[in-house]
Design a protein around this nucleic acid. Sequence first.
DNA 1: TCTATATAAGACTAAAAACATCTTATATGT
DNA 2: ACATATAAGATGTTTTTAGTCTTATATAGA
Lengths: 142, 142
Amino acid sequence: MRLTRAGEYGIRCVRHLAIHGQGKLVSRKEIASRTEVPPHFLAKIAQQLARAGIIEILQGANGGYRLLNDPAKITLLAVIEAIIGEISLNDCVGRPESCRDSALCTVHRVWNKANQQLRATLQEADFATLAREDACCLTSFP
Amino acid sequence: MRLTRAGEYGIRCVRHLAIHGQGKLVSRKEIASRTEVPPHFLAKIAQQLARAGIIEILQGANGGYRLLNDPAKITLLAVIEAIIGEISLNDCVGRPESCRDSALCTVHRVWNKANQQLRATLQEADFATLAREDACCLTSFP
DNA sequence: TCTATATAAGACTAAAAACATCTTATATGT
DNA sequence: ACATATAAGATGTTTTTAGTCTTATATAGA
């Protein structure tokens, strides 16, 4: 697992939308400038979020992005995995076939446990909470 | 954080040494072939493990590597961090200065918790245990 | 209907990191 | 002295990440 820049940007984007509330349309331009994400890069990230059913993209004049669901229902895990794919701390966890016998592998078992914990922690965090307080990472409201 | 190939190889190396027991000298050649790690790459990894005080390197004819401590005292965390540096799931965690106000950042707080959990889980795993049972990843004994 | 504005989609490029190898030097046992 | 083993760092290759650019498409409003 590795939180890439794209993943970080995806979080910023959803958090910014969450601050405005579900269904509120915000232009890509505004999101990009407020969260300091390169606009074209944000476009790609938004497409992934849209495919994952997290946001809706409206084209045309006065277009933009908006959250499809209640921020309280959107987890940090869902956003991250929409961007970087399912989290796996090492290959052993994500692709059992890369192990000779992953069911018995003591090392594997540790990774597996760590991976489950990590995903659980990220799943507990929802964007209603994440948007509520002031936060670093350039995503706070005016 | 990302478990690189080098990290994975470091684990294989220490596990192989742990199977032989503390203080037992094993040649780089044997470790490399048994764990399927490129010999020259293993040399670099071994140097990092040596700098971290995990193994001792003996030069010259009949040289090789050996564990300095009881495998039960060597944690998965120590080995991984000897190779890839201190684990941090995102920049926010590892470099608080990259946040405007990391103490208040709700996103940061989630990462921080996840990071602590991950390190704790990896610290609980020791190489006496990891070496005990059959395992995948090419590190089992003859 | 035409135009301005906005995003879509994917090709393309640059930079960084990962992965590995190669070469020269140094240490040790016989 | 010689054979064998690792040290150390330069070098090269591949993959991934990060970001940009271009052409196409959709929409609001004059």
